[in-house]
């Protein structure tokens, strides 16, 4: 597959007359046609700066970006407009604009001095609107649309621009989960069907892992590129999210929040009920341990029972529950009650 964008030894940042503010350096990456790539990175790692540099809004501090073999710094505004289409985080709010009008502005690089559309332009505009699934809203005012629909209109505008490369800065921010998935699926289809190279920055790692062809993991000193599976294989995600109570599970591709625990609680049992109980107690700083030897105080789990949770003390059951919340409440009450605390200290507190 032909590469559309090539980034070589790129340093990005903001240069003022005297001091340069370097954001990231030593970046090497390529984008291929027909692929959707997700750009991931922690806040402040320079995702937006990289995107702005790729659009030509910022000049690279060192290195270069080439677009179909030409360096972007040598391209004029008009030439750039025919190569890169962008979708930004900032909301477009044009008074009175209809969906059709806004998408039609995407044809601007091709229209004449007064911006009049010819029949080819109109066909492309209509096709773009259809591809993004907003044909039924074609003549609606922009201000009447939901956030998800608005984002689709902006993507349709980028499509109408008919460029080989589309760049999207956090297109799924501010959207609810179904809308996020919908937008990502739309972009996937566009990449596969139209052969465009699509680069989007996002914080949705789980969606990116499932839907992107390639991932770019941006670090201050390099960018790691590869398919999601290969990156999982090489354990590339760990360093990215190593700080602050979050653990990345390579096998599931999911995050787990890590809690500090101050006490342990013996439990007999397993299954779904056990998993739920463990999660609820983890939030409160209590770690569940399997009850191996005889304990004075433990919780017994009977799977598929009407009252699955039993609090046991000295081999007698104190109480039975069907709600996890009730179990947690009862245990915490016992812990905070002073006399119980002393009594049960050796049992519950480490």
């Amino acid at each position: 597959m032909a590469s559309i964008i090539e980034i070589k030894q790129l340093s990005i940042g903001y240069s003022e007359t005297k001091n340069h503010k370097l954001v990231a350096q030593n970046l090497n990456a390529t984008l291929h046609e027909g692929e959707m790539t997700c750009l991931l990175g922690a806040n402040g790692q320079g995702k937006s700066t990289l995107m702005k540099t790729m659009c030509g809004f910022l000049n690279p501090l060192a290195g270069y970006i080439s677009l179909n073999g030409k360096r972007i710094s040598t391209l004029s505004e008009k030439q750039m407009a025919k190569q890169i289409a962008i979708v930004l985080t900032e909301k477009i709010s044009v008074p009175n604009a209809t969906v059709y009008e806004l998408v039609a502005y995407g044809r601007s690089p091709f229209t004449g001095f007064l911006g009049k559309l010819n029949s080819t332009d109109k066909d492309i505009v209509n096709k773009s609107i259809e591809q993004c699934g907003i044909a039924h809203k074609k003549y609606s005012l922009l201000s009447t649309l939901s956030d998800g629909e608005r984002q689709k209109v902006t993507i349709a505008k980028a499509l109408a621009q008919d460029t080989p490369f589309i760049l999207l800065d956090e297109p799924t921010a501010f959207l609810d989960l179904p809308a996020r998935v919908e937008i990502m699926q739309l972009l996937r289809q566009l990449a596969t069907k139209s052969g465009k190279a699509i680069l989007m920055s996002t914080h949705d790692l789980d969606l990116a892992l499932q839907m992107a062809d390639k991932l770019w993991l941006l670090h201050t000193n390099n960018v790691i590129c590869g398919s999601p599976e290969d990156l999982l294989l090489t354990n590339a995600f760990q360093p990215m999210f190593s700080k602050g109570g979050v653990a990345f599970d390579n096998k599931t591709g999911l995050f787990t929040v890590q809690y500090q625990h101050f006490a342990t609680l013996p439990v007999k049992g397993h299954g779904f009920e056990y998993v739920l109980l463990r999660r609820a107690f983890a939030r409160k700083g209590i770690k569940l341990v399997q009850c191996k030897q005889a304990e004075r105080f433990w919780i017994n789990i009977t799977n598929n029972d009407a009252l699955p949770f039993t609090i046991m003390k000295d081999n007698c059951d104190i109480a039975k529950f069907n709600s996890v919340e009730q179990v947690v409440k009862t245990i915490l009450k016992q812990l905070s009650a002073k006399n119980q605390l002393v009594k049960n200290q050796e049992l519950i507190l480490q």
């Binding site: 030509g56 809004f57 505004e77 289409a85 930004l88 900032e90 601007s108 690089p109």
Partner: peptide, 8 residues
């Protein structure tokens, strides 16, 4: 930004 991206 959009204006520049559209070649203005």
């Amino acid at each position: 930004n959009y204006a520049v991206n559209l070649g203005l």
